[in-house]
Simulated scan of single mutants.
Amino acid sequence: MEQILKSEIHPDPRGVLGAAAARARASRTLPLRRKKDLPESGRVLTEDGSADSSGSSWSQSLIKDNDGVKPMKIAPEGHGESVLPSMQLEPVTVQSRCTWITAYSENLYVSFHDEEWGVPVYDDQRIFELLTLSAALSEFSWPTILSRRDKFRKLLDNFNPAIVAKFTEKKINSLKASGSPISEEKLRAVVGNARQILKVIEEFGTFSNYIWSFVNHKPIVNGFRHACQVPMRNPKAELMSNDMMRRGFRCVGPTIIYSFMQAAGIVNDHLSSCFRFRDCSLMFQPV
């Protein structure tokens, strides 16, 4: 009897189906009989396996062994205690990302993909920041750049173009000596680009208006299925690059500009299977 009860309380490794099979074996081995003095609200198991119940949460089944009859409580699901272990499984939500984000990707890179990359940006300082970080791709990868992002912001006054444009030669040498995260050439390009941004703002009202004018103020949504389909540049990037270079911007080749457009949400290059694809497509602000 003790062995039979243990098989009821501790199901075999096969789980619920294994436990049900164990109970079936127990019912074949030990006959059940009706207990006569149960309250009317009780529910009991009879010899033929049927149940007599009238809505009670508790019932008793009787298992007979050599020593007599012993009651064993059985609780319906969600009521009281049960001799069967709880097998509640938490729902698992799997978000499908662009395939270049893998289980081995750094957390900063994953967060950048999930929260920023492809989101349309309209703030001049943010656009200046993403333009500068994208230019650094000629020297570093996105994970490396993102790991140095706080240092970029500290050295470049949170990418305020009005402040960076006033950096003197002494200031540039000071930043270089304090450990600039980019080369001296790139640093000087950043200062020069800040000065050009101020000129663009005088002409277009905001740097954002100028940048978004190349796509008629509406993001390009590609919806590629595979990473190999994502280009390194496109005609709009070439057009923007040429115009920026004509205005005196530096480190703004078409490949760099296309990376910038992706980061700033001017182009939505999330794969169509990525959970961010649709969200980013709906975030632009119509003019």
Rank of each mutant, 00 (worst) to 15 (best):
V119M: 14
M72E: 14
N193G: 04
L155N: 02
G80C: 03
V190H: 00
R195V: 03
R195Q: 14
F224Q: 11
K73A: 14
E139S: 13
W117L: 07
G80H: 01
E106H: 08
R149E: 04
D157L: 11
F112H: 15
E81R: 14
D243F: 01
M72P: 00
Y122I: 10
I182K: 00
Y122E: 01
S56F: 02
I127V: 09
Q229G: 02
E47I: 04
G223F: 01
I266Y: 03
G80S: 08
I101G: 01
E115K: 08
L282Y: 11
K6Y: 07
I220C: 00
I9C: 09
V94E: 05
P76E: 08
T93M: 13
V69T: 09
G78D: 07
G15Q: 01
G80P: 06
G248S: 02
F224K: 11
V92G: 00
G80W: 00
S59L: 12
E115S: 13
A75L: 07
S105I: 13
A51D: 04
T255N: 03
M232S: 13
H217V: 09
P231L: 01
I74N: 12
F140K: 11
I163M: 09
N242G: 10
S61G: 12
D48A: 10
H10Q: 07
L131H: 03
R225I: 08
V191L: 05
V69I: 10
I127N: 07
S241M: 01
V287F: 00
K186R: 13
N193S: 05
S147G: 15
S7W: 12
A26M: 13
P219F: 07
S59A: 13
A135W: 02
P85S: 09
W100A: 00
P13M: 11
S59K: 08
G55S: 09
D48I: 01
S213V: 08
R246Q: 14
S57M: 03
K166E: 05
F159V: 00
S57I: 06
A21T: 10
M245H: 12
A19V: 01
F140T: 04
S53R: 07
E116D: 11
L89N: 04
L239Y: 05
I127L: 15
V92A: 08
G68Q: 12
A189F: 03
K35R: 13
Q95M: 11
S27H: 07
N268Y: 11
K170V: 04
K70L: 13
S59W: 12
S57A: 10
C98I: 04
N160Y: 11
V221G: 02
D150C: 02
D243W: 08
N66T: 13
E238Y: 02
K171H: 09
S50E: 15
F277G: 00
L84Y: 15
S53F: 06
Q262E: 13
W142M: 04
V92E: 09
A51N: 06
D37Q: 12
